[in-house]
Design a protein around this nucleic acid. Structure first.
Lengths: 233, 233
DNA sequence: TGCAATAGTTAACGGCGTTCACTCAAATGA
DNA sequence: TCATTTGAGTGAACGCCGTTAACTATTGCA
């Protein structure tokens, strides 16, 4: 581990300048506005120069997506750490932070959570690797659920029903977290799906036709979902 | 209302040939593979000719999206009509049909339910119009829920909680269906969000890292959700 | 028969990703 | 110190793309 040379520092700076330019284009014009020529133009360079840093536009977008996962994950961790040690409160804070970031950054949300561009399939497929930014992100929700389960088990569908449907099909999830009770695995999947669906529908404007204040619906759903995590009677 | 002239018939045929070509490209290469030049090439035409039928590529894609909404809605209606008159059974059948179509047509799903392309914002915004294909689609789920509610009310969050959060914010939904009890409006939003989220996560490969058999998870969620629609004890 | 509308063409403009051959400055090593 | 290698960046080119403009040929109708 040696100190970075001058060249490495310059290179690093250029890489992040490219990413910054790409993100600016992403925000202002959507993913299809991200072009090597536009990035280079904004940097006072020519497009082929970027190939010294990324092998293709697609690779650049993939790298950007990874950064966005990390940024979002850190927001959630901050929200969690800024809350007491009640798992339900932590999960609520994380859910609000997730929605807040997503609503504030719709283009970025669309990039990492929307329909995968044909070329990005490789990126999302590799999510099986626990070091993948996407997997690291998802994992943030698992630990509080495990804590909550051990503290006061919440109601779930009957264990044998979960077993029957998901029995051997959760290896990926369990591998990344060691001992995950199957009820917790179910709760994670069910809860993350609901959270993601609610936020994605808002960000993608899929419920404008029915609701004028998506945040109100979000808070209502969060309230009822948190109530379902209360200990069984 | 007069019979279509010969010219109108030819024009109609060309329009649908264009759409067919566009869909083929959508399926094989994703939305970004849909190009006027490729469509025209496949038809033995030149690209500018398409401008006699659609004012822009974006307009063509928007028209295609409308067709897809209609196609999907008709699948759901067929599933509903092929089931008895038990609303819960109808809703289950419709949910399965929704997942089946979506999984079988990921590119089409991505077009109508994914991140709206910057230019398509107008399309999704106009969903407020009840004649919009998207609104007509969503409406299919509402009637069975109303029937069910009148037959045997299902458990919901306390009415005053719904009122407080969603009180005046459901005009669009209520306008399109006249008398919709607020509990039904909540159930629709909550249920549709869960269904959409679950299917979208599968189609967008957002849960490959955790689950190997998405259909199993879907059936489990469907089972538990249907159970929640049982009459209150 | 003649006129107007329609469907199609070619050519062109500017933008895009990407490749190739090239230049020039910076780091390296004898 | 000086030659050499490495790396960053340029400009031209290829083949895509959407879109516009000017133009031609055909169809339908009065």
């Amino acid at each position: 581990m040696t100190a970075p040379t001058r060249r490495e520092r310059l290179r690093e700076a250029t890489v992040s300048e490219i990413k910054t330019g790409a993100r600016k284009l992403l925000v202002t014009g959507g993913v299809e506005a991200v072009s090597l020529r536009a990035i280079a133009r904004d940097m006072g360079m020519t497009a082929p120069a970027i190939y010294r840093y990324f092998p293709s536009l697609e690779a650049l977008v993939t790298a950007l997506a990874g950064d966005l996962y990390d940024e979002l994950r850190m927001r959630l961790e901050a929200a969690r750490d800024g809350t007491g040690d009640d798992p339900v409160a932590q999960l609520s804070a994380m859910s609000r932070a997730f929605r807040a970031w997503s609503v504030a950054h719709p283009a970025e949300f669309g990039l990492i959570f929307g329909a995968p561009a044909p070329g990005l399939d490789g990126f999302v497929d590799d999510c099986t690797d626990p070091d993948h930014p996407g997997a690291r992100f998802g994992a943030v929700f698992v630990q509080p659920l495990i804590d909550l389960w051990h503290r006061s088990p919440f109601p779930t569908p009957p264990r044998e029903l979960i077993e029957r449907h998901l029995g051997g099909r959760l290896e990926p999830l369990r591998q990344s977290h060691g001992e995950v009770p199957i009820e917790v695995a179910w709760a994670f999947l069910s809860g993350w799906t609901r959270l993601w669906g609610l936020v994605a529908m808002e960000v993608f404007h899929q419920m404008d036709w029915a609701v004028t204040d998506p945040e109100a619906l979000f808070e209502l759903e969060l309230t009822t979902f948190a109530a379902q995590l209360a200990p069984r009677p």
